[in-house]
Amino acid sequence: MALYEKTASELSELLGKKEISAVELAKDVFARTKAVEDKVQGYVTVAEEAALAQAEAVDKKRASGEELSALAGIPIAIKDNICTKGTLTTCASKMLYNFKPPYNATVIEKLTAADAVITGKANMDEFAMGSSCENSAAHPTHNPHNLDRVPGGSSGGSAAVVAAGEAPLALGSDTGGSIRQPASFCGVVGLKPTYGAVSRYGLIAFASSLDQIGPFGRSIEDAAMLLDAVTGHDPLHDSTSVKTPFEGSLRANLNADVKGLKIGLPKEYFGEGISDAVRKNVMAAAEAYKALGAEVFEISLPLVEYALPIYYILSSAEASSNLARFDGVKYGYRTPNAGDDITELYTKSRSEGFGAEVQRRIMLGTYVLSSGYYDAYYKKAR
């Protein structure tokens, strides 16, 4: 089995035993990327040179006897809406085509401290708005299992590069399914953590009260290992982050006893639209939990039928507010055709810089926040 086919936890063990080097692993992963990336198109930016330098530094630390983290030397792809200092962070948008952040997101600082190797920036639906990874100003990403199908979205690039062997781990962001859905489409493990478990500092905002950074991996252990590294309170930069998201290491507790655990199955989730295969697999998992001593029972979430319209009202309202900062003045795209008129500068820069899906959501959000409609839509949804 090639190195790029192994799970991150397997690679971590090999690195720890010095059976492989971080440079050797990075070169193997980039060789795989060069072989398949023209078909999958999972990246916006590949950072091979910087990654090999990171890997070399890890090997020197290990050779000197330093105690290293489980992620030391493990290649990780980063969704292109998470700020990486000095490396293009475009949100897969023309609006940020030339933006190189002057700072790192908190999660990047944590990964750097853990000596992870960052392979590049993964493609996405523009500003995380979409569920197919086709709404990207860079290019559409393809599902590695069938290039004629989509990988899901908005974190489709992150899911695809893990599924294709272009990185054993990746970070994505999830506002309304943007990690969970592409993980499912690409056959990898993805998780949206509890809101506040991971700092949002440096995550370019779509809908601030819903956005959350989370992991992709080839196994549950991989996802737990990555999540362990990025969770935690961020008192300096994110007041919505929480001090104690959980007790102890997730990875260390994967095989903890589930006896007495209560698991609810919302009956509304098993109605019209669910496929027989999904129903069968979920119920098989429920039976496995029962056999291990968990209590599984039916519950009701009667308001779930309103979840989707509520999501679109609230997320679009927040997007309208958050994306107002992209005005052609401070950074990013500026129209060359505005003359001396400031209103024309704003209008043309935003019309030319944002794609169709982003413009639709900004317009919807502005509508539900406008005078006369705020109470009827936004306030009611909230």
Rank of each mutant, 00 (worst) to 15 (best):
M363I: 14
G353H: 05
K259V: 06
G372K: 03
R360I: 09
P336S: 12
E109N: 14
I220R: 01
G339K: 07
N322Y: 11
N255A: 13
A277E: 15
Y373S: 10
P309S: 04
Y4W: 15
K39V: 02
S219K: 02
A72T: 13
N146H: 12
D211E: 01
I362P: 12
A252I: 01
P235Q: 07
S131E: 08
L52G: 11
M363S: 14
G152H: 13
V29M: 00
A223D: 08
L308R: 06
G190F: 10
S131C: 12
G120K: 07
A163S: 14
S321L: 10
G264K: 00
S199F: 03
K259E: 14
T106Y: 05
S132F: 08
G217C: 08
E298H: 05
D238H: 05
A159Y: 12
R360E: 09
L15H: 10
F30M: 04
V44H: 05
L25E: 06
V258I: 15
Q212G: 02
V329P: 12
T343M: 13
G156V: 11
Y333A: 01
N123V: 11
G232D: 05
K380L: 15
N98T: 14
I204R: 02
G232Q: 00
A160C: 12
P75Q: 11
S173K: 03
I78G: 10
I313P: 00
A277F: 11
T33Q: 12
D238W: 07
V161I: 15
S173I: 00
A92W: 03
N322P: 11
R334H: 11
A284I: 10
M283S: 13
G355L: 10
Y195E: 02
A256G: 10
G165S: 09
N104T: 00
G260N: 04
I204H: 01
V242N: 01
L265Y: 01
R334I: 11
N143H: 12
G328S: 12
L323V: 13
S93N: 07
A35H: 02
K262G: 11
T119K: 06
F270L: 07
F206I: 00
E19D: 15
I313S: 02
A277T: 14
S199V: 06
D341S: 06
E287Y: 13
A53T: 14
A63S: 14
V162K: 09
K27A: 07
Y103P: 01
A170C: 01
V368I: 07
A47E: 13
A53V: 13
L226Y: 04
G16H: 12
D38S: 15
V278P: 13
R200V: 02
I118T: 11
S209P: 00
S241Q: 00
D38P: 02
A53G: 07
S241C: 02
I179R: 05
F354M: 07
A256F: 06
L111G: 03
E305G: 15
F30G: 07
N253S: 09
G293M: 10
G176M: 03
I299T: 15
N337D: 14
